[in-house]
Design a protein around this nucleic acid. Structure first.
Lengths: 341, 341
DNA sequence: CTGAAAGCGCTTACAG
DNA sequence: CTGAAAGCGCTTACAG
């Protein structure tokens, strides 16, 4: 394992000069720089990040705090972040704070305290006050993706608006008996993304004078969750809605699977709309409000880099664009269904 | 930011003693140790990993090289590994070498060379000779999950056997026109998991005297991939098989979705069997050969820890157990279908 | 059982 | 533009 002393010796300069040539700081004559760089390449020299960090105080590493890795949104975002960090020459340390595990406390209290990073990106995390205090105490820039941390720069979509738009799409088609699946009032660790999407649904219903028809069924934000809830909602033939506004595409897909299994046709018997732009959306011809988590991952990296390099960032809270994509999981309700309402 | 000198001062001892008390190495009287620990707690002291690594040569960090984060198997395994490393007090640095990206080369040539880890876990990676040479040149223990690296300790399932078993299950039910979806001959970066599963299918067919009926359709190892391939296979009413042996549950699920969409009933018109034990399996009543990626993640961490602590590991190539779980996506073929064969 | 000293591999003022 | 020296925050022989 060769060190900078070896490079210096081969290039015939001092360690100081070798360091300057390699890191790009300070004056070095072009010819010397070239000689040093060549020497480094010849022996395959790579600076020890530990030693460098010790003196510079920078680690060239970013910590990513994420609740799941195995859900579409989180996986996409994580890959977007990884790409972004790679381009900036940063490593990524993964802190998986799955809700309902004891490891979450351990990570916040023990692992983060090591400060092995120049900054932190949280994804879909709504920290408790104690956790937030921990985060602040690290004295490193923190940026948030898809969660609202007080006083922390963030990137997200407007979760209320997307769900309102999805619901308005159903209302515009003539539906009145619209059930929302996914939402819940209580906000748990994943953040109240589903809570805000429920709000969007309710807003749309009320604005259309359908406040009395508001009905929502809580569900896990996953395909099996949507399936289980869908079976329940569809099961009762007398109170069956004509349309479902799902809190996410995973929930929507689960609902469609449940519908098909029950022998219902989508969209003739039941319209279903989701939110996300999931990779399965096309396969299920799912009408949805699309977001782009990969780009959000890139955007949050940019925001963090601004903070790390002391650049003022354009915006404190960056709202990422979304768009309604109409496919064939939604249609006008059947006439008899409409009159029954 | 307080250092060990502060702890030492408060506890009234030297830095040496403070360090010994905190790291557990060498002799320290019980009372002194307690005083040091208390002092550290009072000021919230956490040793700088950089400084410690610089002298010990250990980073307490593990690099994980993974092609995807967004596929069920990989996500599960990653969470299992994260849990295991957490328990051993190791951080996890993620190296996402998605196939078909330029970042793969950059990671192998640039990022890994920093050696920010005590060891490496590769997941489903079949490195090129050059990449393997890189890995070896790091002079750190490397262990592999689900890929075969020459001379490297590994954990995996018997991919040939699971697929053979799945196919035998179909044959046992009386099927003879069985198509395999997923397999391909060429092996790409993800490793030839699908190649080995194709082999298992062919072995079973040949052993049953059905060699002439062997037929396989390549597909992406994903739900949309299985859907697309399924539509093709099912589309031709004259050559339609009575059963599908899918290379993975994701492919199987995609096939089932395609079948339902085409108006076919599973299993009465078509039996489908998968491999994995995916979280969707139950929702689709999928018969499958179950593996447990989370436990494999734990097992590979154990293997790496053995190597890091100089313990001889029990086994060099550890084959993880699997089991056939019969649900209702498979059944005897219809009589007329059988005679037609 | 404890402390003074050296050193891990770098970078960075500071002189020249 | 270049080099000698100090120091980043720890741990570890080595004496005592």
């Amino acid at each position: 394992m060769s060190g900078i002393a070896d490079v210096a010796r081969i290039a015939g300069v001092s360690k100081s000069t070798a360091s300057r040539a390699l890191t790009g700081g300070g004056y070095v004559s072009e010819s010397t720089r070239q000689r040093v760089i060549d020497a480094a390449r010849v022996i395959g020299y790579v600076a020890s990040p530990n030693a460098a960090s010790l003196v510079t105080g920078r680690t060239k590493n970013v910590g990513v705090i994420i609740p799941f890795v195995n859900r579409w949104y989180f996986g996409e975002v994580l890959e977007g972040i990884e790409d972004g960090l790679l381009a900036c020459d940063y490593d990524l340390t993964l802190y998986n704070v799955r809700p309902g595990t004891t490891s979450r406390a351990r990570i916040f209290e023990h692992f983060l305290a090591r400060k092995r990073f120049d900054g932190i990106i949280t994804i879909g995390i709504e920290p408790s006050p104690a956790e937030l205090a921990r985060l602040v105490s690290l004295e490193r820039p923190v940026v948030a993706l898809g969660g609202q941390l007080p006083g922390i720069a963030s990137v997200s979509i407007d979760d209320v608006a997307v769900s309102r738009l999805a619901t308005e799409h159903l209302i515009g088609l003539g539906h009145t008996r619209i059930v929302h699946i996914g939402g819940e009032r209580s906000d748990d660790l994943v953040g109240s993304v589903h809570g805000r999407r429920l709000t969007g649904y309710m807003d749309a219903m009320e604005a259309a004078g359908l406040g009395a028809q508001i009905l929502y069924v809580p569900s896990d934000m996953s395909v099996p969750g949507g399936y289980a809830a869908g079976v329940q909602v569809i099961g009762d033939p007398r109170n069956r809605p004509t349309a479902i506004s799902a809190a996410s595409d995973e929930v929507a897909v689960g609902t469609i699977i449940a519908a098909r299994r029950t022998g219902m046709e989508v969209p003739s018997d039941l319209s279903v709309v989701g939110v996300d732009g999931h990779e399965y959306a096309e396969m299920f011809s799912l009408t949805t409000v699309e977001q782009s988590p990969r780009e959000q991952g890139a955007a949050i990296v940019d925001l963090l880099m601004d903070a790390l390099e002391g650049r003022p960032s354009a915006d404190h809270v960056l709202l990422h664009p979304t768009r309604l994509v109409v496919r064939s999981s939604t249609a006008r309700p059947r006439p008899e269904a409409m009159t029954r309402s």
